[in-house]
């Protein structure tokens, strides 16, 4: 900033004949000496002789320049690059921690799974559990019911799904007990297809929880579940 203003004042100073003696003219030493000669073409450059009686001694910097130029460059880039890498790693960890902070907390996760002891459910019986505030139907199906579920022609269904797609073990049917129409809770072992019947608007579900008749558009939803060991079921 200061250098440019000074440089701009130089031609003006030259043009005015009554320029005072102490008006600035500048020599930049220790960096490359550069003169703005273009704007002063009409005048004799005041710096023409500046070199001859220069009073400035440029210090010797060779001691600080170190070894080879290329070695210096590699070292400098290495330092800058290392700083960039560490900063990147640090900010990645920071952002990651903030994002992890937003995910479900341990108490929510602890409530998100329920365990069921399957040995308490006799064959051909339904139980209803609460999971994340919603009812879950678990049915221990008999062999006849499994056969019946497999016998259905998929092409005839509104929401075509094979029974094998809807169960992990054929004898255990696990579904969310919420009618896909308007969210009522269907009644078990009722309806025209031996499965579930929604009393609100009369949707009939079969023994695989598939919609067969009534206004509901989709089959009953299947939650995430797994059998960690024989006789135990974990939903969630």
């Amino acid at each position: 900033m200061a250098a440019t203003t000074l440089r701009n004042t130089i031609p003006r100073a030259l043009r005015s004949a009554s320029a005072p003696l102490h008006h600035p003219s500048v020599t930049a030493a220790a960096t490359q000496v550069r003169y703005n000669t273009q704007s002063a073409t009409d005048a004799r450059s005041p710096f023409a002789q500046a070199g001859s009686h220069r009073t400035t001694k440029i210090p010797d910097f060779s001691k600080y320049r170190g070894g080879s130029t290329s070695g210096n460059k590699v070292f400098q880039y290495f330092m800058v690059g290392t700083m960039g890498a560490l900063t990147a790693a640090g900010s990645k960890a920071l952002v990651q921690d903030f994002l992890v902070n937003m995910s479900a907390s341990a108490d929510v996760l602890a409530m998100a799974k329920i365990e069921v002891d399957l040995s308490a459910i006799p064959e051909g019986k339904n139980i209803i559990l609460k999971w994340r505030g919603k009812p879950v139907f678990i049915r221990h199906r008999t062999a006849a019911e499994i056969e019946e579920a497999n016998a259905v022609k998929i092409e005839s269904l509104r929401d075509p799904q094979t029974d094998a797609d809807r169960v992990k073990k054929p004898e255990w049917l696990v579904m969310l007990g919420i009618c896909t129409h308007l969210g009522c809770v269907p009644i078990g072992e009722a309806g025209d297809f031996g499965g579930w019947f929604c009393p609100c608007h009369g949707s009939h579900y079969d023994i695989s929880g598939r919609i067969r008749r009534g206004p509901a558009p989709l089959n009953l939803e299947i939650p995430e579940y797994e059998f960690p060991e024989e006789g135990r079921l974990v939903i969630g």
Binding site: S68, S70, G71, K73, V74, Y77, G81, T82, G84, A85, L86, A88, A89, K92
Partner: peptide, 25 residues
């Protein structure tokens, strides 16, 4: 060696920046 390191890693900025992020990981 220093010359070749310079030429390989630092000469092109995208290589340099890429190396920085790779080494961050």
């Amino acid at each position: 060696i220093t010359n070749s390191i310079y030429n390989v890693l630092f000469r092109r900025n995208y290589v340099f920046v890429g190396a920085v992020f790779a080494s961050a990981f």
